[in-house]
Amino acid sequence: MFILQLIVAGLAVGSVYAIIALGIVLIYKCSGVVNFAQGGYAMLGAFFTYALTTAGLPSAAALVVSLLLMGVVGALTQTLILRPMLKAPVVAVMMATLGILIIFRAICLLIWGPDQIGFPKLFPDGSIEVGGIFMTYNYVAAFLLSAVLCGAFLAFYRYTPLGLMQRCTADNTRAALAVGIHVSNQVTIAWTASAMLAGLGGSLLASLNGLSLGLSNIGLVAFPVIVLGGMTSLPGAVVAGLILGVLQAVTDGLLTPAIERVLRDYTEIYSVGALQQVIPYALLVVVLLVRPQGIFGSKESERV
């Protein structure tokens, strides 16, 4: 029963990972840029939601307004920073996104300070019980919201004309240009969508775990997720997000205590610390070595 409880909690957190990772994959597919700042967008979105609710907006309205703001931020950063860097080397672009992350953190530090902030309740207190498993409304709502959003986003990407243009750009930029798609606008749209996804993910995560600058580290957890999912696969990112969420929860709840018990018996090591934070990276290394294309990715071939 305990393990089921853990899995349910893991799925809720994992679904948030999924929407944050979706954004990274979206940008990567579309422009080949790896966005190290995704965690920064998540954090900024959460702070926006926080600021709007403390300003007196009801939580649902705050969430929506914050998402719109994040969309603007995403579009702005792409136009101002990434667009002039079209021909820059990969490392340079990576560093630029890291620069964005640093600036976002500095802004939040300047306005809201370094301390943990009690995040306003987006959802009512209390919990429901299903078959002996207790779930707080918070977790249920986070899971449902991200599930709906993931579904909506994937459907949008799959079935709408704009989604088709996005896929076209992602598939072959030059061909997209040739058939008359304004590629750099598509990239801007991808950044906008990605920032909104991240903003929502950040707000949900803050409602589960509280809000501080540390939230921006979520962007780094997203990397194991996208690698596991195969870098370019949107459904892969969703599935991998869920897997990692569950894995972390199980590690925290079961594996860590078990390992510590063994270690205390045989060594002087008393605690393994935040093992659940390292597990995704260990998994990442294994995945990269054993199946670099991830669960859903496809292998690229090269020519001489």
Binding site: I81, M85, A88, A92, G99, I100, I103, A106, L110
Partner: peptide, 24 residues
Amino acid sequence: ATQTSAIREMVFGLLIIVFMIYEP
């Protein structure tokens, strides 16, 4: 102190970006 470190970070971040754009 907080403002100082925030400003320091911001300058650092901005400079990285400016460099990446104008003189990679």
